[in-house]
Every structure is written in structure tokens, then in C-alpha cells.
Design a protein around this nucleic acid. Sequence first.
DNA 1: GCGAAATATTGCGTGCACGCAACTTTTGTG
DNA 2: CACAAAAGTTGCGTGCACGCAATATTTCGC
Lengths: 211, 211
Amino acid sequence: MAGLREHKKQATREALQTAALRLALEHGPGNVRVEEIAQAAGVSPRTYNNYFSSREQAIVSAITADRVTRTVAAVLHRPADVPLGVAVLDAVVPAYSGDPEASGAALLMVATTPALRTSYLDTVTGLEEPLAGAIVDRCGGVEALTARVLAAGVVAAIRVALEHWLRAATVPAALPGFVIPAGSLPEVVRAAVTALVPALNAAAPRPEPSG
Amino acid sequence: MAGLREHKKQATREALQTAALRLALEHGPGNVRVEEIAQAAGVSPRTYNNYFSSREQAIVSAITADRVTRTVAAVLHRPADVPLGVAVLDAVVPAYSGDPEASGAALLMVATTPALRTSYLDTVTGLEEPLAGAIVDRCGGVEALTARVLAAGVVAAIRVALEHWLRAATVPAALPGFVIPAGSLPEVVRAAVTALVPALNAAAPRPEPSG
DNA sequence: GCGAAATATTGCGTGCACGCAACTTTTGTG
DNA sequence: CACAAAAGTTGCGTGCACGCAATATTTCGC
């Protein structure tokens, strides 16, 4: 059994994530040293940077969890006869519906800390490559470059939606306890991605092979 | 006259850019210290980071020059009666036509140095905000969020095109002197942005006010 | 089990990005 | 011109990201 190594790696990764998030919430995001996170997870500071390439990355990855994986899976599971734009829309929007209830305090912290915001928005980029693959899988005849552009466009749309939504947390005098307008995120994401639906639907070479 | 300050700042900025590019070409991009660039431009190392937030940024900004400015201006100068998608396409593509002849050696260096590649691709992001503004100016009735998404989509498309094009420099045994397939960049950019044209054209609420 | 190859962890050294608090230069006003 | 306010520059200190080589751990063939 060769799974021991990989199992330990996954455990260390999760230990680092949870430790980073916990310490950031306890002491404030600016008062957490990489050394503390590493120590709390039982590894050396150098090892921390073998798992995460920035101090913020561990914190936000504890929040975003496996959303990328779920989104891609959702796209692939849509029935093949629905237009690409609809499939993407119906796959992406629900992925951002369960977000606010996850942990309001953590999201408020991300929203109000510039470095964390940037890092949080960057996590969406991880969707680009698998999404491009999913688009190719769905529409066989589509150009690789086109699929890539559409995937990058969807990622950009989601990023814009998140920016728009996070801004609501800082602009109206962010009181502690005043969390983010909960239900609105999926709607913003939907509005953003909808702007690209015409391009997504136009990409599939032939949605209906006429009889 | 209050222009002395701003004039000096611009001069320092350009001095840093040219010094960074020259030193990178002379000694190789990995053998240039920030301290050397600052010294060559006659400022302190700390001041360097007041102008550029990374070592690579000065180098690539010496190459990209004012392309963002030109692109936005080109979008705004298209006649108002052409569809948005066409206007964007005809504005963006020429901006990437004069690129290869600028300096083949510098581009080869960027293409083959991962850190410089990343930084180079990041410069395109600077187009997003002004382009979104230009889209709003062109199509009065468009939603701000929609304009932002479309601008971000165009930026993403350009980034994908550049990635695709830069890859050609590394994959086929990049011999020194073998530069990048020159004419192909505008075509790749055109192909990439074309995938988004349906979305761009669908955004304008009413392209032709009839009667 | 045993030893070798593969892989992960660690310490070290270097350069970098940036907050902060002086200090210097430019600007605008009387 | 003088002087104060505004804006730019600099040095310092800190923490971080990462290449590199040494060390410890896991895996795999026998």
C-alpha cells in the first residue's frame, strides 16, 4: 500500500489550513506569523512553504475548500443536450450558494483584509484549466483555444462577482456582527456569468444536428 | 508651474524601466539585483519599490509600454454605430500587431523566464478597469456589472492568447536567434477575442435606434 | 526483513516587499 | 522672499518566499 505518504500529506495540508484559519481568527490576520502556523501544525516553517506559497493561501484555502472540484463535476454532470451556457450557469451558481453559511466571521475577515481578498479571488483561477477541459469534453468539436477563452471568461466573471459582493462588506460601515447580504451572492454570480452565456452557446459547433 | 514634480517622477520611472531591461538583457534576468537597477537609475532601493512592487514589473513594463492606454483610446475612437464586439476586436488586435518587432531579444527573455512571463501576463489586467469604463461610455444603457464582466472577459481572452503564443517560444527548442512566429500574435488574439464577440454584441441594449 | 531508489522534511542563506518614521524637495500663499 | 503644507525619498527593521543541499522517511523489488 503506497497510500501512507499521500495520506500524511493530505493530513498535513489540512492541519495547516485549519491552524492558519484558527490563528487568523483568534489574533487577527495581521498578527499571525508563518512560524506560528507551522508550529501549530507540527511542521517546520520551511515545510509550510512547500504546501502553500504565501501566508494568505492557507487561510483562504480553508474557506474555499473543494469548490473548484465540485464546480467542475457539476458542469460535467449536466445532461449533454442542454446548451453550454445553461449548463455552466446551472453548475456555477449553486457552488456559490452554500458559501455564506459556512462561517460568517471568516468571510468578514477576508472581506476586510486586502491581502486576504486578493488571495481569495485568486483561488478562482484554479477553475480555469479543469473547466476548459470540461468544455472540450462536452462539445467535441470546439477549438482548444476557444474552450480556454470561455473558461477564462467564466473565471473572470466569477471573480468580478465576488469582488462586487465583497465590496458590500466594506462600504456600508462594516460593523462586527453585520455580515454580508447572504442570499445575494448566487444572484450576483448568476448575473455576471449570464453576460457571457451568448458566447458560451455560440461556441458549440452544432447543438442540434438537424434531421 | 506644478509640473516639475510629475515630470521628475515620470523621468525616474522611465529610467528604472530602461535600466531594468538593459541589465536583465546584459546579465540575464536571474542575475539582476534590485539594488543594481536602483543604482543605475540614481535612486535608492527603497524608492524602486515605490514605483514597482516587484523586481519583474519594471522589466516587463519597459516592454508593454503604453499599450493599455492605446487600446482604450482605440475602443473609444471606433464609430458609435458599429457593434461593440466589432469595435473591441478592431481596437484590441492592432494593439498586439506591432509587438514582435519591438525587440525580439527582450521578448525571448520574457518567454523563457517563468517569473517574467507571469508578470508580463499580469500587465494585461490593467486594461480591465478603463475598458469597462469605455464600454459603459459606448453603450449607455448597459449595467455596470455587465460591462465589468465583459471587460474582464476580454482581458482574460488576451491573456490566454498571449499564453498560447508564448508557449510557442519554449516548446520548439528555443534556439537563440529563433524568435517567435512573428505575424501570428494578432491572429491568435483575434481568434481568442472572437469567441467572446457574441456576448459583447448581446450586451448593447439597442444597437440601432430605429426611425 | 533488507537495501536501494524515490520522495518529503528541514536548516540555511539570500534577496525581496513593505510599514514606518525621519528627512528632503516641491508647491502654493502672503 | 519666507514659510508652511504637501508630496517624494531614504534607511531601517521585519517577515516572507524560495533555491539548495543535507537529512529523514516511505516505497518497492528481492
